[in-house]
C-alpha cells in the first residue's frame, strides 16, 4: 500500500484496522503495506495514538435531569391522552355481553338508513289503511246477506213473514235481487198446484234447508223459496250473488283503486326496506 495512493477504500481499511475491526486477510494487507512503507506505518501509528488521546477524554457529568414536564409537551400530551380515551371506548375494545334473540331482532328492525326506514314504515301504515278500507267496503256490501244468514238460522216462521222478509231483502240487494224476486214469482205462478199442495210449515222448513245449503254462496233467503225444478235458475242466481259481483257499481272503481294501491304499497314497503339496509351496509363499508 503506497501512502500516496491512500484512496477512500484504503481509508475505510485503515480506520477499521486502527479499531481492530478487520478480518485476518485485511489485517495482513495493512501490515504488509506498513512493512513496505515507512509513511504508511507512520500514518497508521499516529492515527492509533490520536484515537487513544480521544478515548482518554473524560466523560461529561450531567448538569441536571432532562426529564420533560407536562408544560413542555402539553399540546401533544393532551392529544395523546384524548386519543387513548377514544381508543378505549371504541366498541371493538369493549367486551359486550352476547345479545338475546329479541335484542338482535330489535337491532335488525332499527338498523338501516333512517329516512328510507321511515318511508317504509309510512308505506306499511298506508297499506294497513287500505286493508281497513277494503274490509269496510266488503262489510257494507255483505251486511244484508249477513242479515239473511241470521234469518236462516232463526226458528221457523210463518211463510207470510218469510216472504215479507225475503221481499225486503230483495229490495235492499238491488236489481239482481229484484230479478230474483221476479223469477220466484214466475216460478210460483208456473207451479200453482205444487205450491197449493205444500204445507206452509213444510214450505218454511224447506226454505231454511235451502238457506243453509246456500250459505257459502251468501244467497238471499228468496233463493230458498225456489222449487227444485228451478235449480238451474237458482244456480245462476248464486253465481250472480258472489260478494264482489254484488258490489255497488258506484263503489267498483274505488275497490279497484284500493286493490292496486295495496299491491303498490306492498312493493314499496319491501323495496324501501331493502334499500334502507343496503345503504346502511354500504355506509359501514
Amino acid at each position: 500500500m503506497d501512502p500516496q495512493s491512500l484512496n477512500s477504500v484504503d481509508e475505510d481499511l485503515v480506520a477499521a484496522y486502527v479499531d481492530g475491526d478487520v478480518s485476518t486477510e485485511e489485517r495482513q494487507r495493512v501490515e504488509a503495506a506498513m512493512a513496505a512503507s515507512e509513511q504508511v506505518a507512520w500514518e497508521v501509528n499516529t492515527l492509533r495514538q490520536t484515537v487513544e488521546l480521544l478515548q482518554d477524554l473524560p466523560s461529561v457529568p450531567l448538569p441536571r435531569s432532562f426529564a420533560l414536564t407536562e408544560d413542555q409537551v402539553a399540546d401533544v400530551l393532551q392529544e395523546r391522552r384524548a386519543l387513548a380515551k377514544v381508543n378505549v371506548s371504541l366498541p371493538g375494545n369493549v367486551e359486550t355481553a352476547p345479545e338475546s334473540p329479541w335484542q338482535r331482532f330489535l337491532n335488525f328492525l332499527n338498523g338501516g338508513d333512517l329516512a328510507l326506514r321511515n318511508a317504509a314504515a309510512l308505506a306499511a301504515v298506508l297499506l294497513l289503511l287500505v286493508f281497513a278500507a277494503e274490509f269496510q267496503i266488503q262489510q257494507s256490501q255483505l251486511g244484508p246477506a249477513a242479515g239473511g244468514e241470521q234469518l236462516s238460522s232463526a226458528p221457523a216462521e210463518p211463510q207470510s213473514q218469510v216472504t215479507a222478509i225475503g221481499g225486503s231483502v230483495a229490495e235492499q240487494t238491488g236489481s239482481s235481487s229484484d230479478e230474483q224476486g221476479t223469477s220466484e214469482q214466475v216460478a210460483a205462478a208456473e207451479n200453482p198446484q205444487e205450491n197449493a199442495d205444500d204445507d206452509p210449515v213444510i214450505g218454511v222448513m224447506s226454505t231454511s234447508e235451502e238457506d243453509q245449503q246456500t250459505t257459502d254462496a251468501e244467497q238471499a233467503p228468496a233463493v230458498a223459496a225456489l222449487p227444485e225444478t228451478g235449480s238451474a235458475s237458482a244456480d245462476s242466481s248464486q253465481q250472480q250473488l258472489s260478494p264482489t259481483e254484488t258490489a255497488d257499481p258506484a263503489a267498483q272503481p274505488f275497490v279497484s283503486i284500493l286493490r292496486y294501491a295495496r299491491i303498490l304499497l306492498v312493493l314499496a314497503v319491501i323495496v324501501l326496506w331493502l334499500l334502507s339496509r343496503t345503504r346502511s351496509r354500504s355506509r359501514r363499508a
Binding site: 475505510d12 477499521a16 486502527v18 492515527l47
Partner: peptide, 10 residues
C-alpha cells in the same frame, strides 16, 4: 462512515 472517521482522525 469509516472513511469520515479516518479523515477526521487525520
Amino acid at each position: 462512515v469509516k472513511s469520515r472517521i479516518n479523515r477526521a482522525r487525520g
